[in-house]
Simulated assay, not measured.
Amino acid sequence: MDLRDLDLRDIEIFLMLSAELHFGRTAERLHVSQARVSQVIGKLERRIGGKLFERTSRTVALTPVGVRLRDDLATNYRDLRASLGRASRATRYGDGGILRLGLTSSDLTHVRPPLDAFQATHPDCLLHIEHIHFGNPFGALRGDDIDALMTWLPIHEPDFVVGPTLYEEPFVLLVGADHPLAHRESASYEDLADYGVFGVPPSDPENMPPDYWAAAAVPFFSPSGRPIARTAYASNFQDLVLLAAAGKAITPVHAHAALYYRRPDVAYIPMPDVPPARWALVWRRSGETDLIKDLAAVFAAGRVPDPDGDPVGAPS
């Protein structure tokens, strides 16, 4: 199929309708008329010689041909937008460029020295760092809002490259100050099955974290096999702390939270039997740049020793 006479807006309209399955909402989200949406879909269907959507007065659904076109276009469209964005940033920021880093932690202590080392060798590069909420950990990376992400492992996303491990960090259990576990000297994953824990709101399935990634912090089953129920929901750490203080649920968190979110109405209980979290640098395979590779090399060269004296951080 020859799509050379389509512009980016046509493709964007098709992909948005594929996601929304509603002409009115598609038009509203893209700030175009509903007639414009219909015209674009009609042009596409004439070009391919078949229907992309089955439409009734109540429903809109992709045909098998529409599903195939959506899958073919989605990745290419995302990569094309990312390429245009990189070109635009190169023009705006000059030869030094800009490197946009996302971080699902609130702690820069462990990564500040290698970031400073990178900045020393790339003085003209603008290093921009922003916080990424755990409720949608990979959306900013896939949407080309950031270039690389510092987050916890494991990462099993085929479109991502997992770079060097940056550091390891213990877990602690966050509970309300009046919770039955608040005065315990230690806690374990087994304790979670006796109480409700936090989950991510299921309102946006496309942006929810993968189960395997969420379970690396908050498992779905205890070591003995008992289910660990999600009884309250939060998509960012600020809400999570407030709800924990209110006694809605408990949750394992990374140890740096006890430093940055210390409050009189919550307690942090050590979890000595829980394996530590491993943090790594991750980037989109199709978005790899020389700046990202240089940063990864700096992180790999600045590996920190683990408690046994062996280096942590060899590229995965």
Rank of each mutant, 00 (worst) to 15 (best):
V67D: 10
D72Y: 14
L108C: 01
K43I: 07
E157S: 03
A82I: 02
G66D: 09
I98S: 10
V40F: 05
R29H: 03
A148C: 07
T91D: 15
S88A: 15
G135T: 09
L52S: 00
D144T: 01
D116H: 10
G139I: 13
R112C: 07
V37T: 01
R100G: 05
D147E: 03
D95R: 15
H131E: 10
L73N: 02
L103Q: 05
L80M: 09
D71I: 11
D147Y: 09
L149M: 06
A117T: 05
S83R: 14
T75C: 10
L62D: 11
Y77D: 10
R46V: 02
H122C: 02
D144V: 04
T63V: 07
A61W: 13
G139L: 13
T59P: 15
R92S: 14
G102I: 06
D79I: 08
R58I: 12
R47N: 06
F53D: 05
Y93I: 13
A61Y: 15
R47T: 12
G50A: 11
D124M: 08
T56K: 05
R89M: 15
R78G: 06
R112S: 09
V40R: 06
Y77P: 04
G49Y: 05
L127C: 02
T151H: 04
P114E: 04
G139H: 13
D147H: 11
L62Y: 09
D79A: 03
A82G: 13
P158C: 05
L30H: 00
A90H: 13
Y93M: 07
L80N: 07
E157G: 03
D79W: 03
R89A: 14
G85H: 15
L127H: 08
C125I: 02
E130M: 13
G139P: 12
S106Q: 11
R70E: 13
G50K: 10
D107K: 07
Y93S: 09
A140T: 12
V67C: 13
G96N: 02
A120R: 02
H156W: 12
G66L: 08
D107G: 01
H128E: 14
T63R: 05
G139N: 13
R55A: 11
L30F: 00
R112A: 07
R36P: 11
G49S: 03
P137M: 09
G97S: 09
V32Q: 00
Q34R: 10
Y77M: 08
T63L: 05
G85P: 13
D145L: 07
G135Q: 01
P123I: 09
T151S: 03
D147R: 01
I48N: 04
D71H: 10
I132N: 05
